[in-house]
Computed example of a mutant assay.
Amino acid sequence: MNPVTPSTGLLWVKRGFILFRQQPAEMLTLFFTYMFIVMGLGLIPIAGEFLPLMLIPVFSMSFMQACDQIENGVKVYPNLLMLGFRSEALGRLLTLGIFYVLAVALAIFVSSLVDGGALFDFLSSQKPIDPKVAPDERIFLGMLVAVLTYLLPLMAFWFAAPLIMWKKMSVGKALFYSFFSVKRAGKAFLLYGAAWMLIAGILPALVSVMIAVIFGDPIVVMLTMLPMSALLTTILYCSFYPTYLDIFGKPEISIQA
């Protein structure tokens, strides 16, 4: 494991933008294809409630591998999304996905102890959200508690998938190394997270206000924010790769789809 300085966290964000800029259309195509698959999975009765979450480790390796290919000058194609399913590590990645589901369930359960289940009701509600009705203030408390509860599992999950697939670690070993690697580079991750909260929070807010002032139409605002959200999310995914690269080095196994 390579040591990193606190300022490295800001470089991870910058390098995410650089990676995206090299193949923007390809990465956006990969992202939208992934979203289409996730929406399809969500239509499956019962299983659709947890399958998208369980498959995050499998699909996340598609984006990690895509960034590796960009660095190597290899073009990225949507079929890269099937990479994890063809890997000998699929079983371990699915096991990791089960831990994802359990961790999220735990976070929501803990939040329900302080918000009376308001967050769970909000997430599970099938009713359309009325923008004129202010959300129950308990939901924000529940979200805060859920996020804080999920922080420790997130540290264990952060590098687990690439360690399983690229370094052929067991699930337990990958979770262990991921947790302590993130802990060791804690200051860099704090800056990294803070930078992304500013980018994903303030930038869309400023743009939405400008569009609202210019057009005065909430539909135009929504149509503007959706592609911006997709763009920023894709760049965020690209920034995951440099965090791995600076701590564990170049992937030993480079698999092309």
Rank of each mutant, 00 (worst) to 15 (best):
M1G: 15
N2F: 10
F17L: 08
R21H: 11
P24V: 05
A25E: 13
F31C: 07
F31Y: 09
F32N: 13
Y34T: 03
M35V: 13
P45K: 01
L55G: 13
I56E: 11
P57L: 03
F59N: 09
M61A: 02
C67K: 14
N72T: 09
G73V: 06
V74W: 08
V76L: 11
P78N: 11
L80V: 09
R92V: 05
L93R: 03
I98L: 14
V104I: 11
A105R: 04
L106R: 01
L113I: 08
D115P: 10
G117F: 04
I129W: 13
A134C: 05
A134S: 10
L151P: 08
F157P: 09
F157W: 11
K168R: 14
G172L: 02
G172I: 00
K173F: 11
K173I: 12
F179L: 05
F180W: 09
S181P: 03
R184S: 04
G186Y: 03
K187Q: 10
A200R: 13
G201T: 10
I202E: 07
L203M: 13
A212P: 15
A212S: 15
V213F: 10
I214D: 09
M222G: 14
L226G: 10
P242E: 03
T243W: 01
T243M: 02
T243S: 04
L245R: 07
F248M: 04
F248Y: 02
S254K: 06
Q256M: 14
A257W: 13
